[in-house]
């Protein structure tokens, strides 16, 4: 299977303008970007360059104003919202900067959420979630509440949650910025080892230069444009 050649995400001239009380802010000014299966793509750039907007569009939780963005060959813009929801629930995993774990749910329950959204029964979902937790090295902390876990552990739980329903695209928003260097490093290793494989693409938004080395490709953005796409951090 020619995985690398197959496009997971294909953006063409994506434009997104925010209207903030009269001032028009161009968040995305015609983005062209391809992300391939089996690839870990990093989006880097200064704050406000449009990285987050871009992954929101890619993840199907924000509609672009013009241009097309196809995810696994589906144009999300023209999809009915219920279908889009289903599509998202099935195909996309999320890792957030602030982890966004539900504080009242323990690790297993947090991890099982995507499965439950996809209609899996709770017991099955939690069993599966426990397995994934094992994979991320938290097999013993399944009953812990997020508040009882360290930042790194929380992010692992979040990664487990992004993985549990076996999505084809994982979108990570600053996964390491809330973590110290070593923990961030471990998390990135985990992402590469566990999350990445041939049938999955990872998009990571970050401005943490320490983790650039984990990327297959790096797209540098500024002012709503992609400056350049490079293969390693040294080329930036």
């Amino acid at each position: 299977m020619d995985g690398l050649a197959k496009a997971a995400v294909s953006c063409k001239n994506v434009v997104k303008v925010y209207d903030t009380g009269g001032d028009k802010v161009v968040a995305l000014g015609g983005i062209d970007l391809e992300i391939c299966m089996g690839e870990l793509m990093m989006l880097v750039g200064p704050s406000g360059c449009g990285k987050t907007t871009l992954i929101s569009v890619i993840a199907g939780i924000l509609d672009q104003d013009s241009g097309s963005c196809e995810v696994f060959g589906k144009d999300l813009l023209h999809m009915r919202s219920s279908e889009k929801l289903k599509f998202r629930a099935k195909n996309i995993g999320f890792v957030f900067q602030a982890f966004n774990l539900l504080p009242s749910l323990n690790a297993v329950e947090n991890v099982s959420i995507p499965l439950i959204i996809n209609g899996v029964k709770r017991q099955t979902a939690e069993r599966q979630a426990a397995n994934v937790l094992e994979q991320v090295g938290l097999g013993t902390r399944g009953k812990s509440l997020p508040s009882q876990l360290s930042g790194g552990q929380q992010q692992r739980v979040a990664i487990a949650r992004a993985l549990v329903h076996d999505p084809r695209l994982i979108v990570c928003d600053e996964p390491t910025s809330a973590l110290d260097h070593e923990t961030g490093h471990n998390v990135m290793e985990l992402l590469r080892q566990v999350a990445l494989h041939r049938d999955r693409a990872l998009v990571i938004v970050t401005h943490d230069a320490r983790i650039f080395s984990f990327a297959d490709r790096i797209a540098q953005m500024d002012d709503g444009h992609i400056e350049k796409v490079v293969d390693s951090a040294e080329d930036l």
Partner: peptide, 16 residues
């Protein structure tokens, strides 16, 4: 709200 947003992002419908 943020948690609901997370659920929504993860594909939970309004109805849910």
């Amino acid at each position: 709200l943020r948690q609901f947003g997370v659920l929504k992002a993860m594909g939970a419908s309004n109805w849910t």
